[in-house]
Design a protein around this nucleic acid. Structure first.
Length: 570
RNA sequence: GCGGUGGUAGUCUAGCCUGGUCCAGGACGCCGGCCUUCCAAGCCGGCGACCCGGGUUCAAAUCCCGGCCACCGCACCA
């Protein structure tokens, strides 16, 4: 019989203070989870590992509000695109995605149509409920963002952010200045995001409020070779590209260098961050065999994405779960915010050497045309200034051929213009940076770390074989029996370890075996036991959670030894 | 959201069909004490629950209705 790890784990998580459904005493609320004392500790450790990894890449951190004015998400496309068109059967009340229903029935693309247009198609083509054949309701759009109002008069609409990313994009000008106008640079934010999921399920896997760690890496789209790619080129990754999904070819294992060469991954810039993400997950304690990269199918991709690789972690219970998305967002967000806000979100790229270009300069000879055009003269001159090089060339060509040209009803001759070919020194160009976004969920890796750590021995011992530095209690100090002088010595050892920075507990209740079991269950990597020999020679034993083997060390050397054992020799 | 199943102490569960004998029984847990010298031993004492609301009835953990939550299937998952 197969043991249901999920059952054992959710029981363990609740019982021992890791995580449970929120608002229990009021009956609970779907899609919300509380982190208990041990869970919150692990969650912070995950966040810390991600933060430190990002900082090692030279990215800097930002913190922006959860509540966001409407304009931001109009610009980002979330108000328009972060929606599902729904339709309900008036008879059996089954709900469907209206767009999917139409696409299945008529095999036409209805992307971007309004609710009214979708309703019209359904009525005209007589689409009925696939379940019972009943009449379908009008289509309405359901937006997955939580709405709120800012201020006392409900006159300013806002949303709880559905991703932390926008807080970075809207700050681009300041961040770019902070980065001193040099691409590439990365900015990250670790914080809450909110999505009013229609039907949250699967425990902590789909939450309505969750934590993300997103880094937005701004780069010049013409420079897609990562300077440090050499450091990671031999890293072997398990890939599941689009083509392999469509043709059911299974996963492949390649080095990142091969992945780029063979065209699976667009460039070394993208590939470099795949390595970064993988290393972070390994550092958190996700086993390598439980990690794969799956390329999102075009229809899965978010509205802003040109290409996305999900990093999925394997769950015995739920299968492969998307935990990180690495999305190529292009210049979508910055361009949209430029348009909506009017802010200049470009970066000046300086050429190695200034380019000399010949440019046409065309303006009105005001002396001549002034009397003719009167008030319009100034306006038409402005218009000429805004014309592109190409438009100006056309104009001049026409003048050469016909000797005259017509602008806004005025006939103008060649002599009415001042035409100059000038040489301009161009030191660079303004570009809208492109964005690569590795976006971590925190809650899912949290659950998957626990699930992948849960171990059941042949003799029935259930314990969390969590990576040692991730354990919520790092060391338990136990007198072999609750008698003096063992208890006093043990308590002093405990205090010493606390002061040395360990998350430590002291425990003298119950037999030693029961206590070992108690700390094994929550993943405590080491128990320090004070026994009979301790008063004689000031040594204690350190018991290993996984092997149950003990080594004996001097109390003086204990903190250093534990540091090595838990965190490595650093 | 739809359909199915379910909800009893911190956890697992007995009782529900056939209403009263249930101010709800057990095990584990937790707390206090005794005992105990290395992997969930034992003893004594204690803690603690019928998901919420309404209805039927002399009487509801038990029957009925609604809600909430959980699980499974469908749908959904930018």
């Amino acid at each position: 019989m197969k043991i249901d790890k999920y059952e054992i784990l959710s029981d363990l998580m609740r019982r021992r203070g890791f995580a449970w459904g929120s608002f229990e005493i009021y009956g609970g609320a779907r899609g919300f989870y509380d982190y208990g004392p041990l869970g919150a500790t692990i969650k912070r450790k995950i966040e810390r590992k991600i933060r430190e990894a990002f900082q090692r890449e030279g990215f800097f951190e930002l913190e922006t509000p959860d509540i966001t004015p409407e304009e931001v998400f109009i610009a980002s496309g979330h108000v328009e695109k972060f929606v599902d068109p729904l339709v309900e059967c008036t008879k059996c009340h089954t709900r469907y995605r209206a767009d999917h229903l139409i696409e299945e029935n008529l095999d036409i693309d209805v992307e971007g149509l309004s609710a009214e247009e979708l309703t019209k198609i359904i009525k005209e083509k007589g689409i009925k409920c696939p379940q019972c054949g009943g009449e379908l309701s009008d289509v309405w759009y359901f937006n997955l963002m939580f709405e709120t109002y800012i201020g006392p008069y409900k006159d300013k609409k806002g949303y709880l952010r559905p991703e932390t990313a926008q807080g970075i994009f809207v700050n681009f000008k300041r961040l770019n200045a902070f980065a001193r106008n040099k691409l590439p640079f990365g900015v990250f934010q670790i914080g809450k995001a909110y999505r009013n999921e229609i039907s949250p399920r699967q425990g902590m896997i789909r939450l309505r409020e969750f934590t993300q760690a997103e880094v937005e890496i701004f780069f010049n789209p013409k420079e897609t070779e990562h300077p440090h790619f050499d450091e990671v080129k031999d890293e072997v990754v398990r890939l599941y590209p689009i083509e392999h999904q469509l043709k059911n070819l299974g996963m492949i294992e390649v080095t990142l260098e091969e992945a780029v060469k063979k065209g699976y991954v667009m460039n070394t810039f993208f590939a470099y961050y795949m390595a970064m993400v993988k290393r972070i997950l390994l550092d958190i304690g996700i086993p390598e065999k439980a990690i794969r990269f799956r390329q999102q199918l075009p229809e899965e991709r978010a509205h802003y994405s040109k290409d996305t690789w999900d990093v999925e972690i394997y769950s015995e219970r739920f299968g492969w779960i998307e935990c990180v998305g690495i999305a190529y967002r292009g210049d979508y967000d910055l361009s949209r915010h430029m348009k909506m806000s009017g802010a200049d979100l470009t970066v000046m790229i300086h050429y190695d050497e200034p380019k000399i270009v010949k440019r046409l300069k065309v303006s009105l000879n005001m002396k001549r045309v002034g009397p003719k055009l009167k008030k319009d003269a100034k306006r038409i001159n402005e218009k000429l200034k805004e014309m592109s090089e190409e438009e100006l060339r056309k104009l001049v060509e026409e003048l050469e051929e016909k000797g005259k040209v017509s602008i806004e009803g005025y006939e103008l001759e060649k002599e009415d213009f001042i035409i100059k070919e000038v040489e301009e020194k161009i030191t660079g160009e303004k570009i809208v940076p492109h964005v690569l976004e590795p976006s971590f969920g925190i809650d899912r890796p949290f659950y998957l770390l626990l699930e992948n750590s849960l171990t059941i021995d042949e003799d029935g011992r259930v314990y969390l074989k969590i990576k040692k530095d991730m354990a919520p209690i790092e060391v338990a100090v136990l007198p072999l029996v609750a008698k003096e002088p063992l208890t006093t010595i043990a308590y002093n050892v405990f205090r010493t370890l606390q002061k040395a920075g360990f998350i430590a507990v002291y425990d003298e209740k119950d037999t030693i075996g029961r206590r070992y079991a108690r700390y094994d269950e929550i993943g405590t990597p080491y128990c320090v036991t004070i026994d009979n020999q301790t008063p004689e020679d000031n040594t204690v034993t350190i018991r290993d959670r996984d092997t149950r083997e003990q080594i004996r060390v001097k109390i003086d050397e204990l903190p250093q030894k534990l540091k090595e054992l838990i965190f490595g020799s650093s």
